[in-house]
């Protein structure tokens, strides 16, 4: 039986993990390679590097980080941020990513999903969708949540899958950073609309929030970041709670 996944996200800028400042008791905190391998040892099922660099120079260093990470990480690695074309996807995969997430570029030109899936297989093409709640549903935002589009998030998820995406990384802008729990309605609505796996993101405040989004939000995986980086919980503690709730998960010895 397929296990539900706990996916750990690291925001990377200029080759360093940011948001890591809160991780005061750890010297190696800023190094994505160290952090990724540490989370693997704790039982993370996957790692996501989200590149939030503003410039092309900063961005170029991410491929080097991916290369160094892939040599030491033996769980899947997803790269996201700034991916525009199938050639960008190719470069990320060659550098060491197993999956690549595409956000704004897919809204601008959905064919990038199709072209990437045809070349590399749907299993490595992740459509990243940032959604904000409005009357009657959720709208898709691009460019790090700054630009509103007219796209309905549930419809857009369907379109992404039709274009070739093999997985949806679904972020609630409303919940992101609030620690008030995932947007269960959003996750449920998108999960019902598509037949590819859904990774829920935004709002994790506790291990119990992770349980909720997997159990009643119908997510296949939950993305967790801040509450791990600041030490308020651990991957192990989250997984113990999921196991106790009877969810199928991978436990590490």
């Amino acid at each position: 039986m397929l296990a539900r996944r706990v996916v750990v996200c690291l925001d990377v800028q200029g080759g360093r993990v940011v948001k890591g400042e809160r991780f005061v008791h750890l010297r190696e905190v800023g190094d994505p390679v160290e952090l990724a391998t540490r989370y693997e040892a704790e039982g993370a099922d996957e790692i996501v590097f989200l590149d939030i660099s503003a410039t092309a120079d900063e961005r170029a260093t991410l491929l080097d980080v991916a290369r160094r990470t892939a040599e030491r990480l033996f769980i899947p690695l997803t790269l996201g941020g700034g991916v525009r074309t199938a050639d960008d996807v190719s470069r990320a995969l060659r550098a060491g990513a197993d999956k690549v997430s595409i956000n704004s570029a897919a809204v601008a030109r959905p064919e990038v999903l199709t072209e990437s899936a045809a070349r590399f297989g749907a299993q490595c093409v992740v459509a990243s969708i940032d959604a904000r709640r409005e009357a009657g549903g959720w709208k898709v935002y691009t460019h790090g949540g700054r630009t509103r589009t007219e796209l309905d998030a549930v419809e857009w998820a369907r379109a992404c899958v039709a274009h070739g995406a093999g997985e949806i990384l679904l972020t609630s802008i409303d919940r992101d950073g609030t620690r008030s729990g995932y947007d269960l309605e959003l996750t449920r609505a998108v999960s019902a609309a598509v037949d590819v796996p859904i990774v829920a993101s935004g709002g994790a405040g506790s291990a119990n929030d992770v349980r909720e989004v997997l159990e009643s939000g119908n997510a296949d995986a939950a993305l967790v970041a801040g509450i791990l980086h600041d030490g308020s919980t651990t991957v192990g503690a989250i997984k113990q709670l999921l196991a106790a709730a009877g969810l199928p998960i991978r436990l590490v010895a």
Binding site: M1, L2, A3, R4, R5, D45, Q123, G166, D195, R250
Partner: peptide, 26 residues
């Protein structure tokens, strides 16, 4: 229900010397 299959799945009815030497439950 969900394809591609992406994630960790259990290995069932393993019957090979290699899986005895290096057990891989999932």
């Amino acid at each position: 229900e969900r394809v591609p299959q992406i994630g960790w799945n259990t290995i069932e009815n393993a019957l090979d010397p290699l899986l005895d030497a290096a057990p891989l439950p999932i």
